[in-house]
Amino acid sequence: MEQTSSKFNQLPKSWNLVFNLILIVLCVVCIIPIILVYAISFTSEASLSAKGYQFLPSEWSLDAYRYVFRNGDQILQSAYVTIGVTAIGTLFSLLVTALFSYVLSRRDFRYRNVMAFFLFFTMLFNGGLVPSYIVNTNVLHLADSFWILILPYSLSAFNVIILRTFMQQSIETAILEAARIDGAGEWYIFARIVIPLSKPGLATVGLFTLVTYWNDWFLGQLYITNPKLVSLQYMLMKLQSNIDFVTSNATSATNNMLMAQIPAEGARMAILVIVLTPILCAYPFFQKYFVKGLTIGGIKG
């Protein structure tokens, strides 16, 4: 039996059944394409072009993965970059976001609305790609650096606004008042009261940030030329683009032979599998904060 789903708070049995049925249907609709993606990545190219997509490949093959892992060194290096960027980026971003959200959530802070507006404004208006590029390369000199992969995404107005709303909702002013009367400083209150109380919000925002960093190839594509800083997503995106290029521009004999060998469809799906699987493995870690009964600490009340 699971921990704290208290008896008095449970759904009637019949409705529990109905909800489960609805969810099962939804899950089937959601998971079928995913299974298809995994299946195609293990199907041989020959049977793909002969028979089309199949849930159970008539001819299994690891060619797509062999092809993707051909340059193993670069994949390893890129995996380091991605893990580094995702870990440091998510932590850094969470810290900055939490601090700012807390300031904005303080109802007694005179400039909270000014700052909220200052923040919100960036959600709608932006200078566009070229001006950003000019600032990042010519003013901040961040081209081809590790930090260009982190800083531009480290403060998302959307995340701050969400977290601020969570904080306003779950932290009562009375608790903060009480702590202050007890002589706690602002930093102490933030670290010991605000952070523990906003765990579900932090987990939500943390998950969003993690996904953003993990999935990003755009910044790499724009700013990175050094192979040591090429992230996994960017590398896979390049690989995909190379495949497309060879497939559509076969004009030399060698290229033509190459093309016949590339498992184009399968590689596309294998790339997706490589990207998707770690995220799916990371999700349960965040998930525990989204399930009631496990997170409510003793601080409340």
């Binding site: 960036t122 932006n126 200078g127 000019i134």
Partner: peptide, 14 residues
């Protein structure tokens, strides 16, 4: 920190 990031990455290119 957040305000600095906003100025550098959002308001400067604006």
């Amino acid at each position: 920190p957040a305000l600095i990031l906003l100025v550098l990455f959002n308001y400067l290119p604006m």
